[in-house]
Amino acid sequence: MSWLFQTELFGFTLANWLYFVVLCLGFIAVLLGGVAYTTLFERRVISLMQVRRGPNRAGPLGVLQPIADGVKLFFKEDTVPRTADKVLHRLAPAISLFAALAAFAVVPVGDAYLIPGFGTLQLWIADLNVGVLYLLGIASIGVYGIVLGGWSSGNKYSLLGALRGAAQLISYEIVLGMSLVGVVMITGEMSLRGIVQWQAEHQIPLVLLQPVGFVLFVVGMFAETNRAPFDLVEADTELVAGFHTEYSGFRFGMYMMSEYMAMITVSAVATSLFLGGWGGPFGFLPGPWWVVVGVILFLFLFVWVRATIPRLRYDQLMRFSWSWLIPLGLVNLAVTAVLVVLLDS
């Protein structure tokens, strides 16, 4: 076994590599399971809100429903329209899914824990010192999945959905970015782990220091994940299914997975940045569980909003962003900057 520790590859030992691969696979497995059960969670909760029952046939309380759905999607025919750009059409869902998965890399679910007989287990994948920038960058890559998917389908509805998606995500990324700058200014950290540690040290969740930033982030995350009321890219009553009209089978499933994955990721980011992350419960719960509770709360918010609020129109959405959210974000930044300087000195 000693060769594992002696052979080096790019400056790491093979044991290090193995550890990271297993860690990443573990994260992906948990996330995909989470995605599957988020779909069930959404369907059950929204049915309760809408005096329906929701899926309750497959297994007790419908717990096998996601598996049935997955199996069904997997065996469906994967059609590519004749007018489509074949390569891009096949590639686009993968980009979406990749971006959704990769974004989670910098989200810390917990601290490093010492497990007897094994060693230390860290509950984050990467502790980038520019984690916040990485998140925004990956989010922008995710847009390619939507735009390319819509454009390459050779369908007019898809094209309209893709165009809306591009416009929407550009506006709301600015909002998202601005809400993060306030957090970065207060903590002086750009790594998500660092921000969580700062909150744990000061025993205060940032939502109390950055309430406006929190609201902006929540609005931005609805837009970023294309969820109602910002689900224009797939506005089902106007554009059939928007950018993924022409997708079927597992490629359609990949889009669905990336949407739910993105929901989980932004929920986890929001928990880390504003609710204290794993340092958050301040003694009530073990850290990682607090993150899980936070994620579930945000997912519930996603579902609740979807059941209640109508879809915005594309120009209203843009106006909302440019004439309300971005000025609000700027004011918030200015106030935060002044306060940080005053309180520091």
């Binding site: 929204i46 005096v51 329906r52 059941a307 109508p310 879809r311």
Partner: peptide, 9 residues
């Protein structure tokens, strides 16, 4: 317009 709940009510 996307208000699914009212439909069911």
């Amino acid at each position: 317009l996307g208000v699914t709940s009212v439909f069911l009510y």
